[in-house]
Design a protein around this nucleic acid. Sequence first.
DNA 1: CAAATTGTAACTATTATGGTTACAAAAGGA
DNA 2: TCCTTTTGTAACCATAATAGTTACAATTTG
Lengths: 154, 154
Amino acid sequence: MFSTKLSVSIHILSVIACMEGKSLTSEFIAGSIGTNPVLVRRLMGRLKKADLLVTKTKVGVIGIGRDLDKITLLDIFLAVEDDCEVFGIHTSANPACPIGAEIETVLTYFYQDLEASFYKKLSETTLSDITNRLYKPSFKTGEFPVQTIGKEII
Amino acid sequence: MFSTKLSVSIHILSVIACMEGKSLTSEFIAGSIGTNPVLVRRLMGRLKKADLLVTKTKVGVIGIGRDLDKITLLDIFLAVEDDCEVFGIHTSANPACPIGAEIETVLTYFYQDLEASFYKKLSETTLSDITNRLYKPSFKTGEFPVQTIGKEII
DNA sequence: CAAATTGTAACTATTATGGTTACAAAAGGA
DNA sequence: TCCTTTTGTAACCATAATAGTTACAATTTG
């Protein structure tokens, strides 16, 4: 399967989208994810390069790069995964065998179609679809214990 | 990405489908793939368990388990991949954070839909679609150098 | 019976992921 | 201006999966 990078990146963007105004350090976000601040910074670096996040300053805190309904899961996936092809193809096939000689071409043909369909589906869910299911009014009124998310629980 | 197991398994089944009657040892098939006979036997073991291959004898040579147009890429994929979910979800999310508490549920919701679409697409290509693009009449008339595929080239 | 082949276990090498430490550079408040 | 915080990166480690390999008992078949 694909790694958890997409899931963690969605988590990062959701925290930023739902909690704008709070002190969104990498440590705070990592506290929500249950991981390391460095992982968060690494992924945020890739999200910034893809313009899904914007920094106010060169080294700094952040806002979402576009309207939430203009960021699709495909955008995030392509931003954070190194290798976005769905299936690997062995490159060792024997060209002296008629099947070995053709298999890569034939598999590529079918996989491209599969991949196009997969990407299309990924592009049909947006970050706003995600946050609409996550959001509760209490997020911005501070009714949850922000302090416990960061340093203390970790 | 997913491993090359699906690709190699399609290759195995294609060789068996297109060259029935020849001496289909694991070494011969491995020679076409450019890999190790043990890998071929391992994958064939899983394909047999899924009834995509049938053995004539308990330890023995083989035929395809069904009509080629009744074996889909999904059947093969499910037979040989250990972990068939598309995206991993981090299990470390912090339940004290309102987003951490919900993210797994929300991601699962969207991933299930994505996975269903992916599986459906995988099920729409059959082994006969593959072999129709591979097959040439010379396969069965022996006009290619079978001997060079196995022991000698490796 | 003898040779060939299978099914399986055990082991190695390589790679990717996820986690961690460390630190220079930048930002921003006192 | 200085000091603290935070970022962006590099370097490193542990773990897991893939792919490859050796070995061998069990079975089939000539």
